[in-house]
């Protein structure tokens, strides 16, 4: 009886943290995690998709704000996508001649990003981290969401970041994986599947472009429209279908954040913390009520 009580007390004040796709904006999750920590709320599980996978890993490793920020500043710099992969471009123009291979196709050279990930995470494995971690990717052959919860951290993050066309897919255990946002930009379903009752979700819609100045931007706009609609539909479905309590934290950025605005990372983290602080009272009440009533009263 006593041990049961103790168990439920610890379960009471814990949440699952889900970080959706959103490139460098996902750094806001570092701010969210630190506010949760200050409030004495334990993170029992972290789920990350695309850009979110990187920050989910930093949080699962138990890094404090300063360390996570410094690692981000080292990892996420403009030069990681600066080099073109001309071979890939040629193989798309002349597939027969150059031998087109989906597993190698990405318009950007990914050697630097692989190197940086290796430097930051080395041989760390997902199953050895402090907090259970799930990184989501998309199986490119059947289109389904893949939940990576064991294996090397680096290849899982790289797979989750494999934005179609920009970076080559990743072959992992016989599966060809691409960016997780293609199947679910904010994978709260993964947390629900693992029994989460209270979920803190940090999510972002892809920004709409005011100027569509090239065919590539045209395609990007189409993909943003589809993924925003997918985000909303998935979110709506999970809210209606499941009894988990989902608290969404959408940081407001007064400044415009571009893909490689690394200098804005401290600002992004602060914006995340600010947005989390606005929700923390509600979250506390929810966790208290939960403990008292034993279950959520619908």
């Amino acid at each position: 009886m006593g041990t049961n009580l103790a168990k439920s007390t610890s379960a009471q004040s814990s949440v699952s943290l889900v970080i959706g796709s959103g490139s460098v904006k996902c750094a806001a999750a570092i701010g969210v995690a630190s506010v949760l920590r200050e409030a004495g709320i334990r993170i029992e599980r972290v789920v990350g998709c695309s850009g979110g996978a990187l920050f989910a890993t930093l949080i699962a490793m138990g890094h404090d704000d300063a360390t996570a920020r410094d690692m981000t500043l080292r990892l996420w710099t403009q030069d990681i996508t600066a080099r073109r992969n001309n071979r890939a471009l040629l193989s798309a123009l002349a597939p027969k001649l150059m031998g087109f291979k989906a597993s190698r196709f990405g318009l950007r050279d990914d050697s630097l990003i692989n190197h940086r990930l290796q430097e930051a995470f080395g041989d760390a494995r997902i199953e050895d981290l402090q907090v259970p971690l799930h990184i989501t990717a998309t199986n490119f052959m059947d289109g389904e969401l893949v939940d990576l919860s064991r294996g090397p951290v680096t290849s899982a993050i790289r797979a989750s970041l494999a934005i179609p066309f920009a970076f080559a897919p990743v072959e992992l255990d016989g599966q060809l994986l691409v960016d997780g946002y293609v199947s679910d930009p904010l994978p709260i379903s993964v947390a629900i599947k693992h029994g989460a009752r209270v979920i803190v979700a940090v999510g972002f819609e892809s920004p709409m472009m005011e100027q569509i100045g090239s065919a590539g931007r045209f395609a990007m706009q189409l993909s943003s429209i589809m993924s925003n609609n997918l985000l909303r539909a998935r979110y709506a479905f999970n809210s209606v279908a499941h009894h988990a309590e989902v608290i969404t934290i959408i940081p407001e950025f007064k400044k415009r954040i571009r893909l490689f605005d690394t200098d804005k990372v401290p600002y992004i983290i602060d914006a995340g913390a600010q947005a989390a602080r606005e929700q923390i009272d509600y979250l506390r009440r929810l966790l208290d009520v939960d403990g008292a009533a034993g279950a959520r009263v619908q």
């Binding site: 087109f100 989906a102 196709f105 179609p164 199947s183 997918l230 539909a233 279908a241």
Partner: peptide
Amino acid sequence: IDSGVALVRQVLAVSANHLMRAQFAFHSMA
């Protein structure tokens, strides 16, 4: 997926299928 065109089509197909299923699931339920 043996050409750039097949790659584009695959990305579009996967996104569109997910979108249709998710929206359909929500509307049927709500």
